[in-house]
Nucleic acid binder design. Structure first.
Lengths: 157, 157
DNA sequence: TCTGAAAATGGACCTTT
DNA sequence: AAAGGTCCATTTTCAGA
């Protein structure tokens, strides 16, 4: 899909605050609210905007710990990797999982209630797969920046 | 702030889809739309919901590469660490940054347009600080799971 | 782009525990 | 008091002219 500078401006705005009314967005980018409406609808249909969500503060709902785990697998057979991916996808404590080139194979970011919960999870996610050579645990002491924003301000159409 | 099971159910719903109308949320949890409205407003005021945003697909706006960098610093002096944190916060390509205990010190997740852009960023973020002992670059081959959801379904109030 | 109908939000007010 | 429900005004969305 081709995006012009209006689309980029709208995306930049709604990825920071999706509650802004369309007429206000229109005022920012010099477009009528109807035009904004049409563009937002199309961006959603085309999948440029995946979904709109409210971000919940993990600390306030009992998940104060963020843990990053680097996982090195024993065997890179596709079916084994897929099984591991599926177990990460299915685990609600896993916020993110990346399959990476380089020394380790997976980088997994989790939020947990306490270290005991993490220990339990390592068992079900890493040991039970029988395909983890080793993993390294990094405990976040400070979540300096947490978001999923894509840089769009500088881009132009 | 104390959250009851209604709040948890609402949070679980809106962190997956914040476009659901309040009356529909109310139907799911057995509450009137006015009650849902009051609760959502309070959750936002108390900061339990940080903000509501649309998630943009990085690939569709020219940011196909996700890169994870582990940074080890030379000196852990607070003012130097703060300066580094600020440079990560200010960089739009940095989606996430965690200050971690363990071997490395920062884990940084970036989205970039191409490797050349990453190379440029390493210069400004890592070399110019004069406080990076070494860094390790992990290129994501597959973004298996990308989100910021907190596990709430099992929790009850 | 403008207009207007349908839908959603959010306040007022009253009732219940 | 705290929280729910109903009703209603205002705002927002969104399609057709």
């Amino acid at each position: 899909m081709s995006l012009d500078s209006y689309d980029i401006a709208l995306l930049a705005a709604i990825q920071q605050d999706a509650t802004t009314p369309q007429h206000a967005l229109g005022a920012q980018v010099n477009l009528s609210s109807a035009a904004v409406n049409r563009r937002l609808k199309k961006l959603a249909e085309e999948g440029v905007t995946r979904k709109t969500v409210s971000l919940v503060d993990p600390e306030q709902v009992g998940y104060p710990l963020t843990i990053i785990t680097e996982v090195e697998v024993e065997n890179e057979r596709l079916d084994l990797l897929d099984a591991m991916k599926r177990s990460f996808l299915a685990c609600p404590q896993v916020q993110q999982c990346y399959y990476v080139a380089g020394e380790c194979d997976f980088v997994v970011i989790m939020v947990v209630q306490n270290m005991a919960q993490y220990t339990t999870l390592t068992r079900s996610l890493f040991f039970e797969s029988n395909n983890v050579k080793r993993f390294k645990t990094l405990v976040s002491m400070s979540n300096v920046k947490v978001g999923l924003e894509v840089p769009l301000d500088a881009v132009a159409g």
